[in-house]
Simulated scan of single mutants.
Amino acid sequence: MQRTIRPKEIIRQRNFRLKLVLLALVSTGLGFLAFWWTANRGWVATDDAFVMGHLITLKAQTEGTVTEILAEDTQLVRKGDVLVRLDGGHARIALRQAEAELGATVRDLITLTAKVETLRQRALAKQAALGQVRHDLARFNAAASDGAVSGQQLENAADKIRELEASIRETRAEQAGAEAQLRHAGIDDHPAVEKAKSRLRHAFLDYRRRNVVAPVSGYVARRKVEIGDTLKPGSPLLAIVPLTQLWIEANFLETQIAGIRPGQAAEIRVDAYGGDVIYHGRVQGLAPGTGSRFALLPTDNATGNFIHVSERLQVRITLEPTELQAHPLQPGLSTLTRIQLKETGRPPLASLADTESEAYRTDVYDRELEGVEQLIQQVIAQNKS
């Protein structure tokens, strides 16, 4: 049986299906728009944001040849751990030389003290001789009237007196010069000894620094030093990255920063974890200038071909330590960062940044001079006796 084609019914069914599809699309669009409006309203976001951290570069502080390497890239080291050892031959020679110079200085001062006493006694002896000649001259003058003493004897006595007086003045001047070097100071605190002590402390410090220690705890990166390398002060060795002290540097367009304030909440998604992990943080502060002003070659817009380009301002955002511990990050990773603008926050120029963490200070160098004062007293005592 032949089926009857009804064009109006076909058109009506097609229009009905099209309406259903259109209704589904509109509903989906409205739902997505409602979700976006609910989830993103009051937020400002950027994908020009990266994880940042401290990169503590260690350099050689003294001259020497590398004899041992105790740390490798990716390895965790603790504050105070020895990372690189140098042979310390030059530092050891310099230390022995400084000890010898201190001992020689002490002996020179002892000799100078004895010289002052010798000159004083010499001046007294010459003063006694001068008194005797003066007595002789007085007797010669008394006997000259009777003709018992010649004029030549009188002249010789007077010349001898002048000679002794000049010699006494010379001896006293030499004594004064020696006393001026001593200045009534003891040997232990004499300026020359203090100078020698400083040289010994410096040599002792160089000798102690043949062992390069970690100033903070962290992970080793960028190791450049090798066994047998001859190092000079300032030679780069390796870097330490404390992964517990990380933050986000997010670069927002200048059209986005009007509502950003320190203290506002932030959410961070890291590309390495996809969208499964969300980090939370707080705005610490805004950079005092855009990136172009701190570039190696700042832009000069005083030209005829100026094109307006929106600048970016760097915003520093802290990360929650507990979240970092659960999902570790490394400096340099890319992120998608957004900031909640509904919160009032602090004034725009305020800063919540602080320097209280371990990465801003270390005490591993405070004990480098331990033992040097005992060595100094030992050297002085050995050369005094």
Rank of each mutant, 00 (worst) to 15 (best):
D146S: 14
D87Q: 09
A123T: 04
A114Q: 15
G89Y: 09
A123E: 00
Q152R: 07
Q121E: 14
I110P: 00
A123N: 06
V82T: 15
V106Y: 08
G147T: 04
G88Q: 10
A144H: 13
L76P: 10
V133T: 11
Q152V: 06
Q121N: 15
L164I: 04
Q153S: 13
A144F: 06
L119S: 06
A114P: 03
G103M: 03
G147P: 08
D136L: 03
N141L: 13
A143T: 12
V133C: 01
Q132H: 13
L109P: 05
A144Y: 05
G88V: 08
K126S: 14
A129M: 12
R122A: 15
R162M: 10
F140C: 00
I110E: 15
I110G: 12
E165H: 01
R139V: 05
A125V: 15
G151E: 13
R96L: 13
A143G: 09
Q97A: 13
E163T: 04
L130Q: 09
D136S: 08
L137N: 11
K126Y: 09
V133D: 09
V133P: 02
L83M: 07
A128S: 07
I161F: 12
L130G: 06
L86V: 02
K160E: 15
V106P: 01
Q152W: 07
L109S: 10
V149F: 08
A129S: 15
Q153C: 06
A91D: 01
Q152K: 05
A144D: 00
R122Q: 15
R107T: 07
T113S: 15
L86K: 11
R85Y: 07
R162V: 04
A148K: 09
V77D: 05
T111C: 00
A166F: 04
E155S: 15
R120G: 13
Q152C: 01
V133H: 08
E155L: 14
L109C: 11
V116Y: 08
V149P: 07
A123L: 03
L86P: 04
A166P: 04
R78E: 11
L137H: 09
L83D: 05
R122V: 02
A123M: 05
L83A: 04
E99W: 00
K79V: 02
L119G: 04
L95I: 08
A166T: 05
K79R: 14
L83P: 10
L95G: 12
V133L: 10
R134Y: 07
T118P: 03
H135A: 13
Q127H: 10
T111G: 08
L119F: 13
T113K: 14
A129W: 00
R139C: 00
G151S: 12
K160F: 03
E165C: 02
D108V: 05
A143R: 14
Q153N: 12
A125Y: 06
L95W: 08
Q132I: 14
G151W: 00
D81N: 14
D81R: 05
H135L: 13
L83T: 02
L137E: 02
L95R: 12
A128H: 02
R78L: 06
A148W: 10
L109R: 02
A144S: 12
A142H: 12
L83E: 05
T118F: 11
A158R: 15
R85T: 06
V84N: 07
G88S: 09
